[in-house]
């Protein structure tokens, strides 16, 4: 009696697990409607190939799981101990079965192996055709993007033209980081002292979110970035603006006095020691390059939207927003903060 109660317990437990899994699947569907960065919603050929390969493994896995757990459940129900059941035959094995369940996994593995190898060479070899090159340098805890063909150096937001191959060379100035934009491509580590390469391509315009994926110290969680894919025309316009900016900073000043005060404060408060702004005397290379800062959508390595309020809060106390980052709290007077904010936002 006790025995059968226990077996009922087991059955109920198993049932519960399955209900739970179903519930989880439901939760997943619900949550999946809004993820900001996701390998499940590819927007380019690399990520699409990776998802296709993944789904192949998922289908095979579901098949094997159903088979194994199905057999387990059948065995549990059919061969549960009952009163009056004869003692089981002491079977020690079966060679035919052993051969079968050796060969079946070999075949399944081979089915996965072929697209795996093909995919490895696919991600390793950028296709022929129009391309741009971006050199990515990871820093604790932000991203530097250099476009060697255009003389552009920017930070935390990588603009790319849609439909073109983007060849990336990646390195790091300090520890290992990993460059990852799930919607566009799997990750590639940035190793100090070495250049890695990868490629990606965005099919449609949009903002694709990315994040450092290799633990790199205290602000690892806040080392994010954005890839902004634009039509080739928009991208060319952006490059053209940069060419102007290299000669002198492009200033769209609604409040010229404030902006002028901000430009002064930027130098007085020694912001230039770490930050560069093309066309000015600010040539620091420790922190992110701030040229055309007003065109950026985000702050603090993708953490915050680039609003005047957020920027002011950041300058006021960077450590409160992003603990451990390398910009110290500089005790800039409030009026200078407002001026610097106006100045930086006029760079567009």
């Amino acid at each position: 009696m006790r025995r059968s109660r226990l077996s009922r317990c087991v059955q109920r437990g198993t049932l519960l697990v399955f209900v739970l899994l179903l519930a989880l699947a439901g939760a997943q569907v619900y949550a999946q409607s809004t993820p900001q960065q996701s390998a499940l919603q590819p927007a380019g050929p690399v990520a699409r190939m990776q998802l296709d390969l993944f789904m192949l493994t998922v289908y095979i896995a579901i098949g094997i799981f159903t088979l194994v757990v199905g057999l387990l459940l059948i065995a549990i129900v059919r061969f549960r101990s009952r009163p009056g059941r004869p003692e089981p035959k002491q079977v020690t094995g079966n060679n035919t079965l052993e051969v079968v369940w050796t060969i079946v996994p070999v075949i399944l593995v081979a089915i996965i192996a072929v697209p795996t190898v093909r995919g490895l060479f696919f991600v390793d070899t950028p296709p022929e055709g129009e391309s741009i090159t971006v050199n990515v340098t990871a820093h604790q805890w932000w991203w530097e993007f250099e476009y060697p063909d255009y003389g552009i150096v920017t930070a935390n937001e990588m603009r790319i033209p849609t439909g073109k191959v983007v060849k990336l060379n990646l390195t790091s100035s300090d520890v290992i980081h990993s460059f990852w934009v799930p919607n566009l491509a799997g990750k590639m580590d940035t190793n100090p002292g070495r250049w890695n390469s990868m490629w990606l391509q965005a099919d449609t315009p949009g903002v694709y979110y990315g994040q450092c994926a290799e633990f790199c110290g205290v602000a690892h969680a806040n080392m994010r970035f954005r890839v902004i894919a634009e039509t080739p025309e928009e991208f060319d316009a952006w490059v053209a603006r940069w060419e102007e900016a290299l000669v002198e900073p492009v200033v769209h000043a609604e409040t010229p006095d404030l902006v002028a005060r901000g430009a002064e404060a930027f130098m007085d408060r020694a912001c230039f020691a770490c930050h560069a702004i093309a066309g000015t005397d600010a040539k620091g290379v420790v922190g992110p390059n701030l040229t055309l800062f007003g065109t950026r959508t985000s702050l603090a390595a993708g953490m915050l939207d680039n609003t005047p309020e957020n920027l002011a809060a950041w300058i006021r106390d960077p450590q409160a927003i992003k603990p451990g980052n390398q910009m110290p709290r500089l005790n800039v007077p409030e009026e200078d903060i407002q001026a610097i904010v106006a100045y930086l936002h006029s760079l567009r």
Partner: peptide, 19 residues
């Protein structure tokens, strides 16, 4: 074990790694 097999599909692993 099955998610381990998924990892062995290296190009897909590049999405899964360190997540």
């Amino acid at each position: 074990g099955l998610s381990g097999v998924m990892h062995s599909a290296a190009p897909a692993n590049m999405q899964q790694h360190d997540t």
